[in-house]
């Protein structure tokens, strides 16, 4: 990878459970098309979770994921998805996985099959690392699965965050404001004990930037908007001086609605 540039998309679901008629297909399709036509090209996208709103005992998981992946097919790069609460049971407090309270739901199984398996990932939590050709910088993306939390993931998170890189991005569905409702509130102290460039979350259906906690919320990927922001996505681009330019873009107009720069430590630049 010649330079670090990626996009962020998050939260794409209908208003109601098993509501495939309300799936925001046209919105998420436009978002992926927009990202695909960005110049310079965007080689990969991270997504913050919630790709469906399906009852665990129902049959709409694959149908809704197929709509999502159909939209996603408009983009020719790689997508690295985080797990949302709707990929467990739908409840923010739900916890999935073998041995967890909610077990392996159909939502989780189908999501992993449809979105993780194609990129060679076998667990809902994982790390992706990118390095400059001349080794001048490196970046790790640590994907936390709040709704598949267990002691194994906790130990993995500590280990993953201990690997030194120039940039560290934590991608987790639930942001700080919702963390106490999740099974993974312990992830907060682990993350706080390690270097962090930017925490990338969704769950809340809006865009927001909280500089003090090094967090951006990107949950405006088609799910019903909870604030005044429009649907859109975020672009992150490494600058020549090593800082990162973060831009939030409107999916209809392409207008940059928010922009800020941070250093590799996450401090404002």
């Amino acid at each position: 990878m010649s330079d670090l540039r990626f996009a962020v998309v998050g939260d794409t679901r209908p208003p109601n459970i098993d509501d495939i008629s309300g799936y925001p297909t046209s919105i998420i399709t436009k978002i992926w098309q927009d990202i695909d036509t960005e110049s310079p090209a965007v080689p990969f996208v991270v997504s913050t979770g919630d790709y469906m709103f399906a009852s665990t005992n129902g049959t709409q998981q694959l149908s809704q994921l197929n709509l999502y992946m159909g939209a996603r097919s408009n983009y020719h790069g790689t997508q690295y998805p985080a797990m949302g609460n709707h990929e467990c049971t739908g409840a923010t407090a739900s916890n999935c996985g073998a041995g967890a309270a909610d077990g392996i739901t159909k939502n989780m199984a189908d999501w992993m099959t449809m979105m993780l398996q194609p990129i060679g990932i076998s667990k809902p939590y994982y790390t992706e690392t990118f390095t400059a050709p001349d080794n001048s910088w490196s970046a790790k993306f640590v994907f936390v699965a709040c709704n598949a939390w267990n002691t194994t993931q906790s130990a993995w998170l500590t280990s993953a965050l201990s690997v030194p890189t120039t940039y560290t991005f934590v991608v987790r569905h639930e942001g700080d404001s919702a963390l106490s409702q999740t099974p993974c509130s312990a992830s907060s102290s682990i993350i706080a004990a390690h270097p962090l460039t930017l925490k990338i979350v969704g769950h809340t259906h809006t865009y927001a930037h909280y500089a003090s906690s090094k967090e951006i919320v990107v949950g405006n990927g088609g799910a019903p908007l909870t604030s005044g922001n429009n649907y859109g996505y975020v672009l992150v681009t490494r600058q020549a001086n090593g800082n990162l330019l973060v831009q939030e873009k409107d999916y209809q107009t392409g207008a940059v609605l928010d922009t800020f720069q941070i250093t590799p430590t996450g401090a404002g630049a």
Partner: peptide
């Protein structure tokens, strides 16, 4: 004329 923000239905 655009979809309301916040969303309502």
């Amino acid at each position: 004329g655009q979809l309301a923000r916040p969303s309502s239905e």
